[in-house]
Simulated scan of single mutants.
Amino acid sequence: MKGSQYAVIGLGRFGSSVAKELIELGFEVLGIDRNEEIVDEMSNVLTHTVVADATDEEVLKSLGIRNFDCAVVAIGDDIQASIMAAILVKDLGVKNVVAKALSELHGKVLHKIGVDRIIYPERDMGIRVAHQLVSPNLLDYIELSKEYTIAELSVTGRISGMTLEQLDTRKKYGCSVVAINKRGGIVIAPTAEDTVDERDIMVVIGTNEQIEDFQQAVSG
Protein backbone atom coordinates (compact mmCIF):
# COMPACT_ATOMS: atom_id res chain seq x y z
CA MET A 1 0.00 0.00 0.00
CA LYS A 2 1.56 3.25 -1.15
CA GLY A 3 1.34 6.47 0.85
CA SER A 4 -0.17 6.95 4.26
CA GLN A 5 -2.66 4.41 5.55
CA TYR A 6 -5.56 5.49 7.75
CA ALA A 7 -7.80 3.59 10.13
CA VAL A 8 -11.07 5.25 11.12
CA ILE A 9 -12.66 3.79 14.24
CA GLY A 10 -16.35 4.64 14.46
CA LEU A 11 -18.27 5.24 11.24
CA GLY A 12 -20.98 7.58 12.46
CA ARG A 13 -21.57 10.95 10.78
CA PHE A 14 -18.18 12.37 11.74
CA GLY A 15 -16.14 9.22 11.16
CA SER A 16 -17.74 8.36 7.83
CA SER A 17 -17.27 11.95 6.64
CA VAL A 18 -13.54 11.86 7.50
CA ALA A 19 -13.13 8.42 5.93
CA LYS A 20 -14.88 9.39 2.68
CA GLU A 21 -12.81 12.55 2.34
CA LEU A 22 -9.56 10.61 2.86
CA ILE A 23 -10.64 8.26 0.06
CA GLU A 24 -11.38 11.28 -2.16
CA LEU A 25 -7.87 12.54 -1.42
CA GLY A 26 -6.45 9.28 -2.72
CA PHE A 27 -5.57 7.45 0.50
CA GLU A 28 -6.42 3.92 1.58
CA VAL A 29 -8.76 3.69 4.55
CA LEU A 30 -9.79 0.92 6.90
CA GLY A 31 -13.17 1.58 8.51
CA ILE A 32 -14.00 -0.10 11.82
CA ASP A 33 -17.40 -0.11 13.54
CA ARG A 34 -19.43 -2.42 15.76
CA ASN A 35 -22.59 -1.78 13.73
CA GLU A 36 -22.83 -4.31 10.90
CA GLU A 37 -25.36 -2.22 8.96
CA ILE A 38 -23.09 0.84 8.93
CA VAL A 39 -20.08 -1.26 7.90
CA ASP A 40 -22.09 -2.75 5.02
CA GLU A 41 -23.07 0.74 3.83
CA MET A 42 -19.42 1.86 3.80
CA SER A 43 -17.98 -1.33 2.32
CA ASN A 44 -18.29 -0.07 -1.26
CA VAL A 45 -16.78 3.32 -0.38
CA LEU A 46 -13.72 2.53 1.74
CA THR A 47 -10.69 0.39 0.91
CA HIS A 48 -11.48 -2.08 3.70
CA THR A 49 -14.24 -2.25 6.31
CA VAL A 50 -14.67 -4.57 9.26
CA VAL A 51 -17.24 -5.19 11.97
CA ALA A 52 -15.16 -5.17 15.14
CA ASP A 53 -14.91 -3.98 18.75
CA ALA A 54 -12.07 -1.44 18.84
CA THR A 55 -11.85 -1.74 22.63
CA ASP A 56 -10.55 -5.32 22.26
CA GLU A 57 -6.76 -5.34 22.06
CA GLU A 58 -6.57 -8.74 20.37
CA VAL A 59 -9.00 -7.63 17.67
CA LEU A 60 -6.91 -4.53 16.90
CA LYS A 61 -3.76 -6.65 16.79
CA SER A 62 -5.40 -9.05 14.34
CA LEU A 63 -6.30 -6.11 12.09
CA GLY A 64 -2.64 -5.05 12.00
CA ILE A 65 -3.49 -1.64 13.45
CA ARG A 66 0.19 -1.02 14.30
CA ASN A 67 0.92 -0.84 10.54
CA PHE A 68 -1.27 2.22 10.03
CA ASP A 69 0.26 5.70 9.90
CA CYS A 70 -2.76 7.33 11.52
CA ALA A 71 -5.80 6.18 13.48
CA VAL A 72 -8.85 8.43 13.82
CA VAL A 73 -10.93 7.55 16.88
CA ALA A 74 -14.34 8.90 15.86
CA ILE A 75 -16.54 6.93 18.26
CA GLY A 76 -19.81 8.81 18.73
CA ASP A 77 -21.39 8.92 22.18
CA ASP A 78 -19.53 6.24 24.15
CA ILE A 79 -16.77 8.15 25.97
CA GLN A 80 -15.45 5.04 27.69
CA ALA A 81 -15.09 3.19 24.36
CA SER A 82 -13.45 6.26 22.80
CA ILE A 83 -10.84 6.49 25.57
CA MET A 84 -10.19 2.74 25.57
CA ALA A 85 -9.74 2.61 21.78
CA ALA A 86 -7.38 5.61 21.90
CA ILE A 87 -5.27 4.00 24.64
CA LEU A 88 -5.02 0.73 22.70
CA VAL A 89 -4.03 2.23 19.34
CA LYS A 90 -1.38 4.35 21.09
CA ASP A 91 -0.04 1.33 22.99
CA LEU A 92 0.00 -0.76 19.82
CA GLY A 93 2.32 1.73 18.16
CA VAL A 94 0.21 3.80 15.78
CA LYS A 95 2.36 6.85 14.95
CA ASN A 96 -0.38 9.47 14.85
CA VAL A 97 -3.65 9.21 16.80
CA VAL A 98 -6.46 11.71 16.27
CA ALA A 99 -9.62 11.55 18.39
CA LYS A 100 -13.01 13.23 18.49
CA ALA A 101 -13.90 14.67 21.90
CA LEU A 102 -17.48 15.14 23.05
CA SER A 103 -16.61 17.58 25.84
CA GLU A 104 -13.72 19.52 27.35
CA LEU A 105 -13.33 16.87 30.06
CA HIS A 106 -13.27 14.09 27.46
CA GLY A 107 -10.62 16.07 25.59
CA LYS A 108 -8.49 16.47 28.72
CA VAL A 109 -8.50 12.71 29.27
CA LEU A 110 -7.54 12.08 25.63
CA HIS A 111 -4.71 14.58 26.00
CA LYS A 112 -3.49 12.85 29.19
CA ILE A 113 -3.25 9.48 27.44
CA GLY A 114 -1.14 10.95 24.65
CA VAL A 115 -3.57 11.49 21.77
CA ASP A 116 -1.73 13.59 19.18
CA ARG A 117 -4.65 15.71 18.04
CA ILE A 118 -8.05 16.24 19.62
CA ILE A 119 -10.99 17.50 17.59
CA TYR A 120 -14.17 19.07 18.94
CA PRO A 121 -16.47 19.05 15.87
CA GLU A 122 -19.57 20.61 17.45
CA ARG A 123 -17.66 23.26 19.43
CA ASP A 124 -15.39 24.20 16.53
CA MET A 125 -18.28 24.44 14.08
CA GLY A 126 -20.19 26.62 16.53
CA ILE A 127 -17.22 28.99 16.85
CA ARG A 128 -16.81 29.19 13.07
CA VAL A 129 -20.51 29.86 12.48
CA ALA A 130 -20.56 32.59 15.15
CA HIS A 131 -17.59 34.37 13.57
CA GLN A 132 -19.17 34.14 10.12
CA LEU A 133 -22.43 35.62 11.45
CA VAL A 134 -20.79 38.70 12.95
CA SER A 135 -18.26 39.28 10.13
CA PRO A 136 -19.95 39.27 6.69
CA ASN A 137 -16.70 39.00 4.71
CA LEU A 138 -15.25 36.27 6.94
CA LEU A 139 -15.80 33.04 5.01
CA ASP A 140 -14.04 30.56 7.25
CA TYR A 141 -12.21 30.52 10.57
CA ILE A 142 -9.95 27.85 12.06
CA GLU A 143 -8.17 28.18 15.40
CA LEU A 144 -4.62 26.84 14.99
CA SER A 145 -3.67 27.31 18.65
CA LYS A 146 -4.56 29.50 21.60
CA GLU A 147 -2.61 32.32 19.97
CA TYR A 148 -3.05 31.88 16.23
CA THR A 149 -5.95 31.64 13.82
CA ILE A 150 -6.20 31.14 10.08
CA ALA A 151 -9.11 32.86 8.35
CA GLU A 152 -10.54 33.23 4.87
CA LEU A 153 -11.58 36.80 4.08
CA SER A 154 -13.38 37.88 0.92
CA VAL A 155 -11.82 40.91 -0.80
CA THR A 156 -14.12 43.93 -0.64
CA GLY A 157 -14.33 46.84 -3.09
CA ARG A 158 -12.46 48.97 -0.55
CA ILE A 159 -9.16 47.18 -1.22
CA SER A 160 -9.80 45.73 -4.69
CA GLY A 161 -6.83 46.29 -7.02
CA MET A 162 -4.34 46.90 -4.22
CA THR A 163 -1.04 45.03 -3.99
CA LEU A 164 0.01 43.24 -0.82
CA GLU A 165 2.74 45.84 -0.48
CA GLN A 166 0.08 48.57 -0.38
CA LEU A 167 -2.01 46.61 2.12
CA ASP A 168 1.09 46.04 4.27
CA THR A 169 -0.87 43.78 6.61
CA ARG A 170 2.16 42.67 8.61
CA LYS A 171 3.23 46.19 9.58
CA LYS A 172 -0.24 47.67 10.03
CA TYR A 173 -2.09 44.77 11.65
CA GLY A 174 0.52 42.09 12.48
CA CYS A 175 -1.14 39.40 10.35
CA SER A 176 0.04 37.87 7.07
CA VAL A 177 -1.68 36.95 3.79
CA VAL A 178 -0.36 33.44 3.06
CA ALA A 179 -2.48 32.68 -0.02
CA ILE A 180 -4.95 34.30 -2.41
CA ASN A 181 -7.72 32.23 -3.98
CA LYS A 182 -8.44 33.75 -7.38
CA ARG A 183 -10.83 32.58 -10.09
CA GLY A 184 -7.90 31.22 -12.09
CA GLY A 185 -6.41 29.29 -9.16
CA ILE A 186 -4.72 29.68 -5.79
CA VAL A 187 -1.61 31.84 -5.35
CA ILE A 188 0.45 30.25 -2.56
CA ALA A 189 2.94 32.47 -0.67
CA PRO A 190 2.06 35.60 -2.71
CA THR A 191 4.66 38.32 -3.20
CA ALA A 192 4.42 42.02 -2.42
CA GLU A 193 3.54 42.68 -6.09
CA ASP A 194 0.51 40.36 -6.11
CA THR A 195 -2.84 42.16 -6.19
CA VAL A 196 -6.16 41.34 -4.58
CA ASP A 197 -9.36 41.85 -6.54
CA GLU A 198 -13.00 41.89 -5.57
CA ARG A 199 -14.32 38.34 -5.05
CA ASP A 200 -10.82 36.98 -4.41
CA ILE A 201 -10.42 35.17 -1.10
CA MET A 202 -7.45 35.98 1.13
CA VAL A 203 -6.11 33.33 3.49
CA VAL A 204 -4.79 35.24 6.50
CA ILE A 205 -2.86 34.02 9.53
CA GLY A 206 -2.49 35.92 12.80
CA THR A 207 -3.97 36.31 16.26
CA ASN A 208 -7.73 36.74 16.68
CA GLU A 209 -7.22 40.43 17.48
CA GLN A 210 -4.96 41.06 14.46
CA ILE A 211 -7.36 39.39 12.04
CA GLU A 212 -10.33 41.22 13.55
CA ASP A 213 -8.54 44.57 13.16
CA PHE A 214 -7.68 43.79 9.53
CA GLN A 215 -11.19 42.51 8.79
CA GLN A 216 -12.76 45.70 10.19
CA ALA A 217 -10.34 47.88 8.22
CA VAL A 218 -11.09 46.25 4.87
CA SER A 219 -14.86 46.17 5.38
CA GLY A 220 -15.30 49.53 7.07
Rank of each mutant, 00 (worst) to 15 (best):
K182Q: 12
T195V: 08
V178E: 04
I119E: 01
Y173Q: 05
E104F: 02
E147I: 11
K172V: 02
P121L: 08
S176G: 00
D168V: 08
N96T: 12
L167S: 11
N96D: 04
E143H: 00
L92S: 09
I142P: 05
M202S: 12
A151D: 02
V134G: 00
I159P: 11
E152Y: 08
V203Y: 09
R128P: 01
A189N: 13
V109H: 01
A101I: 02
G93S: 00
K90T: 06
I113C: 07
K172P: 02
I118M: 09
R158Q: 13
L105D: 00
A189C: 05
T195R: 15
E104R: 12
T195E: 10
T169P: 14
I142N: 09
L110R: 14
P136T: 10
H111C: 02
A189G: 01
H131G: 05
L110K: 05
V115L: 08
L133E: 01
I119W: 05
V177R: 04
N137R: 13
I113A: 05
D197V: 07
K172C: 02
I119K: 14
S154N: 03
I142V: 13
V134K: 14
V89N: 05
V196A: 03
V204I: 14
P121A: 11
V94E: 06
V109P: 06
S103C: 05
K171A: 14
L110N: 01
N181Q: 15
